[in-house]
Simulated assay, not measured.
Amino acid sequence: IQKLTKAGSQALHHNDANQALCIFKRAYLHSLNLSEQQVQNACLFNLGAAYIAVGKAKKGLKCLVRTKLKGSQERDADLYFNIATAYDTMNEYCNSVKFYEKAISQYKKHEVGSIADAQIKLGYCFTNTGEPSSAAHAFREAGLLYQNAQKVNDAAMALREATKYMLQSDTFSKSDVLQVLSECLQLCKEITDPTLQGKLYNDVGLHYAELKCFSQAEQCFIEAMNLCSGGNFSIKKRAVQLQNLGAVNNALNQYEKSLRYHTEAADMYGALKERKAQGGCLCNLAYAYSQLKNYNMALFYYEQALCAFIEEGDLHGQWQVCEGLGATQFCLGNIDQAISFYKQALAVFGRSKDISDTLRKRIEDKLTDAIEYKVRHQPPASHTVKTTSL
């Protein structure tokens, strides 16, 4: 039984849950030949864990409950953790929350790694019950615990999740979120895995951008792009970073820099035949040119973007480009064409999944302005008189 238990635990550690289940079944059958109830309970506990690991949560839960009924000597904290995991697997998140919280309360203070693991699980349960604030608290607590346990990678990922759900909740102030982002950024610098480090820098950058902290976002995206080299080089990863950098430079009104980033990103997406992403870059290029008052270049890139979005059937992209084309034609003095594009934008908006009244009204207001401008600047009608011959 001892040999089988050791082998089963190793199989679970190496993510071979099916092999672990077979081994723990054998160990449990052997334990039935012994009179020691404690050994039987331990084997039944392991068997329950293995059933949960292979996705047979109901069977696993039955095993765990039986160990409790038989007076198992297994630690309550681990038992509650496994019961919570079983409920989690069955999507019974309210029960899962209850048992993860029980497990957390039962772990000893020095078992920070186990408590942090339970907090992470608890956080994801809260996301499934629609409680982003509670999820953020759980992930934040996990991050602090992982730091105490010297688990830098886990701590950084936990704080990233905390930030994500803080932003989804109305409980936290901007300064609260920025504090956690700053802590996460500090941990990023200590990570030695370049793939994970690059991913975290990108995610943190996106959160800074969401908070309109574009300078901080730019620095994060630069760090992420610098990691897209050597063995970690990926054309798509680099294209994403270039696109992000172009977007934040647009937001910072640094349009010349934005042009360089978006041009390179658009070329890369084109080589990858990712037309939707390429369309987004082309649209941003057009916007940058429009802000530099180079309306002919803006028109060119908006038209290129529209072709890409039409090919992909992307209605959201299409109405945005049509709105941009309307504004560009208006600036070029082509009022009739501007009106036509604004009408087209409204028509496509109506067919898309976008339901924002604010966005619809924005286009309607631009259309109204264009029509009124045309009326104000229309030449007066010529008056003709009839004459007769004498």
Results as ranks from 00 to 15, higher is better:
residue 120 I to C: 12
residue 283 C to A: 12
residue 114 S to P: 00
residue 174 K to V: 06
residue 86 A to E: 02
residue 192 T to C: 08
residue 28 Y to E: 07
residue 339 I to P: 10
residue 205 G to A: 04
residue 72 S to E: 01
residue 366 K to F: 05
residue 286 A to V: 08
residue 192 T to S: 13
residue 252 L to M: 10
residue 24 F to R: 11
residue 74 E to W: 00
residue 251 A to F: 01
residue 145 L to C: 01
residue 307 C to G: 02
residue 21 L to H: 06
residue 203 D to H: 03
residue 245 L to R: 03
residue 83 I to P: 13
residue 303 E to P: 03
residue 6 K to V: 12
residue 134 S to L: 15
residue 210 E to H: 09
residue 320 Q to C: 11
residue 136 A to M: 03
residue 371 I to A: 00
residue 378 Q to C: 13
residue 177 V to D: 02
residue 327 A to H: 12
residue 54 V to W: 03
residue 206 L to I: 05
residue 214 F to T: 00
residue 262 H to Y: 09
residue 170 D to H: 11
residue 34 L to A: 07
residue 97 V to E: 04
residue 318 Q to T: 00
residue 117 D to S: 12
residue 116 A to C: 07
residue 289 Y to P: 04
residue 344 Q to C: 09
residue 212 K to D: 11
residue 272 L to K: 09
residue 232 N to R: 08
residue 95 N to E: 15
residue 315 L to A: 13
residue 298 A to M: 04
residue 322 C to S: 14
residue 246 G to D: 08
residue 342 Y to R: 08
residue 159 L to C: 07
residue 100 Y to I: 03
residue 177 V to Y: 05
residue 258 S to Y: 01
residue 57 A to S: 14
residue 243 Q to D: 08
residue 378 Q to I: 14
residue 124 Y to P: 00
residue 317 G to S: 06
residue 43 C to I: 03
residue 172 F to C: 01
residue 56 K to C: 09
residue 235 I to E: 13
residue 48 G to C: 04
residue 314 D to S: 10
residue 55 G to F: 08
residue 52 I to E: 01
residue 382 S to C: 07
residue 184 C to F: 02
residue 76 D to I: 00
residue 236 K to T: 14
residue 135 A to Y: 00
residue 13 H to K: 14
residue 54 V to P: 10
residue 366 K to S: 12
residue 60 G to I: 12
residue 38 Q to M: 01
residue 297 M to R: 15
residue 62 K to G: 07
residue 109 K to V: 10
residue 27 A to L: 07
residue 284 N to W: 06
residue 228 C to D: 02
residue 312 E to L: 01
residue 115 I to E: 11
residue 231 G to R: 07
residue 43 C to H: 04
residue 315 L to Q: 15
residue 134 S to G: 01
residue 316 H to T: 13
residue 215 S to K: 11
residue 233 F to R: 02
residue 157 M to Q: 14
residue 87 Y to F: 13
residue 221 F to T: 06
residue 359 L to S: 11
residue 19 Q to R: 15
residue 309 F to L: 10
residue 214 F to S: 10
residue 279 G to K: 06
residue 152 V to H: 01
residue 8 G to R: 07
residue 202 N to R: 11
residue 230 G to N: 05
residue 104 I to D: 07
residue 93 Y to M: 08
residue 285 L to A: 02
residue 110 H to I: 15
residue 220 C to I: 05
residue 122 L to E: 03
residue 164 K to T: 14
residue 38 Q to T: 05
residue 223 E to P: 00
residue 83 I to K: 09
residue 357 D to V: 10
residue 103 A to Y: 05
residue 30 H to D: 13
residue 276 K to M: 08
residue 39 V to L: 14
residue 240 V to P: 02
residue 214 F to A: 08
residue 121 K to R: 15
residue 219 Q to G: 08
residue 59 K to I: 04
residue 291 Q to E: 15
residue 21 L to N: 07
